[in-house]
């Protein structure tokens, strides 16, 4: 084999590695989540109990129950089903039918609260960030005097590079008390988490929205100005229609970012499994559940965590994919 074909093969394999990585993320998460998927099914997505102990009455005799449990363990050897135990009722004795009565205590895990927490915190973040990001990008593309465009643009880009953990820490110590003063409720809450998340994605969203707006050819803008259009009319009737697809794509891409963000939210959302009664109550989101519980989880809980990870992965894949392919498709 000559060098040329070796080089080409190495390049091809490296490109294929991307496909392999993405496919194995999908498969590995799916396999790890499978025990929870079998145990809880689709109901997992709407079940709001996490770590709740329930007793399941069983009509089957003890012996049969044991053997089926064993069978499931063998089937799901990745995560042994150690959360459920069979406790025969001591006072139950023998029933009329002559069958021994028994119950199983089970700890059930449902993903509803983190799913809702993720969706709500992302929505708050978007409600805060979209108008401001639009303002910044309109400012940068049409209003700002020339000497401001570069430094402000650079500042926005640098801010987008600051690690999200910094935003989270600032939010916890400086922003949360102020939010509490204004809105009442708890310092650590869905609202604070959503707002800090919004502040975090703001520079990213502003930078890519500005890039989308800047694709408008200046000939179009100039001809509108020469017809006597005001700046606002140029933005509304020329830039927005022209760059609409790119702007929507940028917003959706930022939404994908916000959905999977861990650190900016982890400090602020409160990490309690509770449906927030109001915006100022604490709750939890999927990335934060993963961040806080992965280390010490096992058995069904571990599998439930992977179920959540799988849900998050599929959702962000769809959202980011939509943004990139439908709205931000590059010309090749």
């Amino acid at each position: 084999m000559n060098r040329e074909s070796i080089f080409k093969k190495v390049a091809f394999s490296s490109a294929t590695l991307i496909l392999v990585m993405l496919a194995s993320i999908f498969v590995m998460l799916f396999i790890s989540a499978k025990p929870a998927m079998q145990e809880y099914g689709w109901h997992f997505l709407v079940d709001s109990s996490w770590g709740k102990t329930i007793e399941v009455k069983s009509d089957k005799p003890l012996a049969t129950q044991k053997s089926t449990t064993k069978k499931t363990i063998n089937d799901e050897n990745l995560f042994a089903n150690e959360d459920s135990a069979i406790i025969p009722l001591s006072d139950g004795g023998i029933e009329d039918s002559g069958q021994p009565k028994n119950t199983i205590t089970k700890i059930i895990y449902g993903g509803f609260i983190p799913i809702i927490g993720t969706i709500l915190s992302t929505l708050i973040a978007m409600a805060f960030a979209v108008p401001i990001a639009m303002g910044i990008s309109i400012f940068l593309s049409e209003i700002a005097p020339k000497f401001l465009i570069k430094p402000v643009g650079l500042a926005i880009e640098l801010l987008a590079a600051i690690p999200s953990i910094i935003y989270g820490m600032w939010g916890l110590f400086y922003f949360a008390p102020i939010v509490q003063d204004i809105f009442g409720g708890d310092q650590i809450s869905l609202l604070t988490a959503g707002l800090v998340l919004g502040i975090m994605i703001l520079p990213f969203m502003a930078a890519i929205t500005r890039d989308a707006m800047n694709t408008t050819p200046s000939v179009l803008k100039e001809s509108a100005y020469s017809l006597g259009a005001t700046k606002f009319e140029v933005v509304k009737d020329v830039i927005f229609p022209y760059a609409k697809v790119g702007i929507i794509g940028s917003v959706i891409l930022s939404l994908g970012r916000a959905l999977g963000e861990t650190m900016a939210v982890a400090f602020l959302i409160g990490s309690v499994f509770k449906i927030p009664g109001s915006l100022t109550n604490p709750t939890i989101s999927i990335p934060v559940v993963l961040a806080n519980n992965f280390g010490e989880a096992s058995g069904n809980m571990m599998s439930a965590l992977f179920y959540l990870a799988f849900v998050l992965f599929v959702f962000s894949f769809i959202i980011i994919g939509t943004a990139k392919f439908y709205f931000l498709r590059k010309h090749r």
């Binding site: 991307i18 990585m21 993405l22 194995s24 993320i25 590995m28 998460l29 891409l253 994908g256 970012r257 959905l259 999977g260 963000e261 861990t262 990335p287 993963l290 961040a291 992965f294 965590l305 992977f306 990870a309 998050l312 992965f313 962000s316 894949f317 980011i320 994919g321 990139k324």
Partner: peptide, 15 residues
């Protein structure tokens, strides 16, 4: 590859 660039980093961690 573009999608992977924006994938949640916590997912990479769990993988």
């Amino acid at each position: 590859s573009d999608i992977m660039m924006s994938a949640p980093s916590i997912i990479i961690g769990s993988f």
